[in-house]
Design a protein around this nucleic acid. Sequence first.
DNA 1: CCTATACACTGAAACGTTACAGATTGTCAC
DNA 2: GTGACAATCTGTAACGTTTCAGTGTATAGG
Lengths: 349, 349
Amino acid sequence: MDRDQTEKDDEASGLGRPTLKTLAFMTGLGVTTVSRALKDAPEIGAETRRRVQLVAKQIGYRPNRAGVRLRTGKTSVISLVLNTEREIMSFVSDIIYGVSEVIADTPYHLIVTPYSRTQDPLDPIRYLVETGSADGVIISRTQPNDPRARYMLERGIPFATHGRTDMGLIHPYHDFDNYAFATEAVRHLAGIGRRRLALLAPPVELTYHGHTLDGFTDALSEVGASEIPFNTVSIDHSIEQIRMRTAQLMRRDVRPDGFVSSAAAATLAIVAGIEDAGLKLGRDVDVVSKQSSDLLHLFRRELLVVNENFRLAGAELARSVLGWIGGATPGSLQSLSKPTGVLAYCRPD
Amino acid sequence: MDRDQTEKDDEASGLGRPTLKTLAFMTGLGVTTVSRALKDAPEIGAETRRRVQLVAKQIGYRPNRAGVRLRTGKTSVISLVLNTEREIMSFVSDIIYGVSEVIADTPYHLIVTPYSRTQDPLDPIRYLVETGSADGVIISRTQPNDPRARYMLERGIPFATHGRTDMGLIHPYHDFDNYAFATEAVRHLAGIGRRRLALLAPPVELTYHGHTLDGFTDALSEVGASEIPFNTVSIDHSIEQIRMRTAQLMRRDVRPDGFVSSAAAATLAIVAGIEDAGLKLGRDVDVVSKQSSDLLHLFRRELLVVNENFRLAGAELARSVLGWIGGATPGSLQSLSKPTGVLAYCRPD
DNA sequence: CCTATACACTGAAACGTTACAGATTGTCAC
DNA sequence: GTGACAATCTGTAACGTTTCAGTGTATAGG
């Protein structure tokens, strides 16, 4: 028995990372008891529980993720799935920080799962689901009929989408109210006398293209302004393309006197295109743009901006996924964020 | 025996994810043999090996990460450690994509480990090392005497730094040649007649502050220009702060006629400050700025820019870490990227 | 005094993988 | 015919965790 004791001693008090076995040895309890004591199981005596938790804290016990994952199948991982070419730059950074913020005091890790232009967007999702690499998934660039959402819904894996779908299926999402953005933009432009408006929209395949367009056209007829079609480019196009098309448009006889732009980088290109055509921002034409960081007003003071907070989106999305994992009903995990109206503050005049 | 067979059948041909057991059952081999066959171990017959690998491919076998990790301690995870407040936006997105690009056809996953202003930068590193959450780590905002690098070097965990240290210790890094950037910038400004130059530097605590400053002052004396001190702000300061300080500086009697700026967003603020003071870019003052995406020339055509490719940095860093994990010597995994000279292309005149 | 029953705890098994120490062949030299 | 040896293959045990099915031991009810 003496010998046994020594062996056990060697094993359990090892200098490596402490495990349940270490704790069991130190407290003189069984591994099972320790495991349950740490998760406040009801059948453990109050004192034992406290004792175990104290020792655990003292020696800095951290459950081995691989052990838990192997046993329970729970990965404690949230995956953020991103397109490596088309994602807005500030979106990537802000959404990551938003998610991080929320999962900071949970055991969750954030893994970034990228996919490229050439890949089926479903590929990374399939990979995640098939290999069981994550407990929850966040996707962006959501489409009205989104195969990824459908797929995950079928497999029962919790997820949240940035942007809504339109398939009659219920799932968590966070979205910016692009309809409101577009209507406010149009109303404002009309308010300062602009009557022929062009919209630089998101790519057609994404849901918020529709929202934006609806808001745009609804407001257009509300204020009695007309649309100058500008469908040859979207915010997914290159800066150069947008600039060139804008310049082309502005050289026509009937040209817009107002723009609504769905992305900040694209707005830079629009302005450049306007100036290429020899016109002046604020005099010949006004531009309302969404932005996610407060930089556009440095670019041209005359720009009208509406802010979309991606960090908030990240936080909301993370909360949604965690909520779903935690058992909440998907329908209760949907949120829409209103544009923060800053249309005025760039025009102090 | 019949009965045994049936039971085994039930277990191994289950409809869940295929495991080694599934493969063993299908091929009629032992689990060990299958395991070794899949990793091309020498003691497995050529035909058996092929057979196993064929079946594995057919049924889409993927090793269970938790199993491997528990058994071997290998996580197949690279962690990118980021400051949630101070990191450059485009840096975050580009470096992630750079890393992704390299680990795409490896079994590695990328996890993002954030830390905030209020935290000791060593905290996330300690967490990663103590919990063994990653096989390799990438850090940014590297300091000359960097406790994180020292810590990881002591623990023997592979890592790479974005930026160099200066502790006489050898480790993989990738850095942009900020000395070259600063000298080229100064030379160019001097070449177009600018004699009183100000530098908007990185924060003092980071290694590349020193590199940038050295390049700046060395080139300054080389071309015989003088420095207008501008140390009250760094590129870490807020846009508003930089703008205000720039305006203040430009209203002085002796004011710079040239700026060197280490970050694109800061450059926007500098230009705004210049214009706040009633001066004109390109006439009263020229600005050379680093940028990571091709947007500054849209902002003001007169801006002089030098490109730093963060995506490349991410790829290099990932290669370094993987190299170290793979057994390469740390000293052979260092790289320095030269500024791509585009100083001219914004001044077609 | 015996039997329920609640209470506090425990050992063994399993998750999927790899490493260790064999086991079963067949071949060859002597 | 025997021993040695290589070539292939296999069972068992471990990694750290949780779950299942208990095991004792008081306390209470009859």
